[in-house]
Design a binder for these strands. Structure first.
Lengths: 190, 190
DNA sequence: TGTATACTTGAGTGATCACTCAAGAAAGCC
DNA sequence: GGCTTTCTTGAGTGATCACTCAAGTATACA
């Protein structure tokens, strides 16, 4: 009896993610979304409910994709190599809508307003940090990093450096690849 | 013959800076500014011309204040100690409107729109980086840092770490002071 | 093919956006 | 006190914001 929608929901969320990632929350208007998703307002609200609900979906996709890329890297090269390659990978991805992390952008834009999406971004960052800690611990088990270090401390610092790297990569005239290499090299001396 | 304005322009710019710093460009409405500056729209536009013009002034004040704080630190403690203390100082300043750097917030928010203010933020960041490089060079002359390092490379990395630190400080549940201490310690081993 | 059921359309909602401007108030000089 | 000049006031500008909804359209099952 029903009629099926003539779009791929997941693909729409990806397109929305790219737009939100690039332009931020306030910088993305519904008109922009309508253009990119090729949807009229009625369909949009029937499909997603609100701009905020779609942003949340987009951010979830962003976060899980990031974790999966890290996981894939670890499976292929092992924990320490994954941690070393990740910064470079992030910075060299020229197809990405922005160099900076969508989670940090969201956090910085909306934290002062105590917007629920800022809290959401925070949670995703925590999850990623936990993932980093896990890899650091595995690297210790493999003998690649001295066990005197607390993996959680290493992960906290690593993520901080990564966030800094990605802000720097958004700047003009800054050699982000060089910084990424420095971060990678810093892991050898642990 | 004329009538003098009944406000202190510099103080108004400071108040605007605090609001912009905290809430960002799009997050700060003219209504917000009118409330904080205690000005009606007519006076506001007579005094500053536009929201963008005031933001630019606010960002300039932010940038020069930052450079002066660093300079004061260097004069009191010397270059290497200044570089070590600066991250801690930034993170521990509880009176600041936000932990994150106003320049990076502006850059991340407006870079995708190619907004002139993003370019402006970029220039201020470059100036600050040059200041860092100068201190690194002075620290080398003083024998505190090995001369094998390029001060410009050190400054680039230092600023990246600092930006990451300040994003991390904006998060909840992250011990930013610990990261600041790690950054400071990292400078000893150079 | 008829009908029920969803999806699509797009003009329209009130609210808020940055900004304007004419009129009134206050200060400095004679 | 009168006059000039600037500052202050605040209602009002069109544009854009996120969002709604009634009407039209297409699809799947009978």
């Amino acid at each position: 009896m029903p009629r099926k929608p003539n779009y791929d929901r997941d693909e729409l969320i990806e397109r929305a993610r790219d737009l939100f990632w690039k332009r931020g929350w306030a910088g993305t208007s519904l008109k922009d979304l309508e253009a990119v998703l090729e949807m009229k307002p009625g369909s949009f609200y029937a499909a997603f409910g609100s701009k905020e609900a779609l942003f949340k979906l987009a951010m979830e996709k962003y976060a899980t994709d990031g974790r999966e890329r890290l996981k894939a890297l670890a499976q292929e090269h092992g924990p320490i190599k994954a941690l070393q390659r990740f910064p470079k990978m992030v910075v060299e991805n020229d197809t990405a809508p922005a160099k900076a992390c969508m989670l940090s952008k969201t956090l910085l834009e909306l934290h002062a307003h105590k917007h629920p999406l800022a809290h959401e971004a925070n949670l995703h960052l925590l999850k990623m940090e936990a993932h980093f800690a896990e890899l650091f611990q595995q690297a210790q088990s493999a003998g690649d990093i001295d066990v005197s270090h607390d993996p959680k401390v290493l992960a906290r610092r690593y993520q901080s450096d990564l966030l800094g790297l990605r802000v720097s990569a958004e700047r003009e005239g800054v050699d982000a690849k060089a910084i990424a290499a420095e971060i990678a090299n810093g892991l050898i001396r642990l």
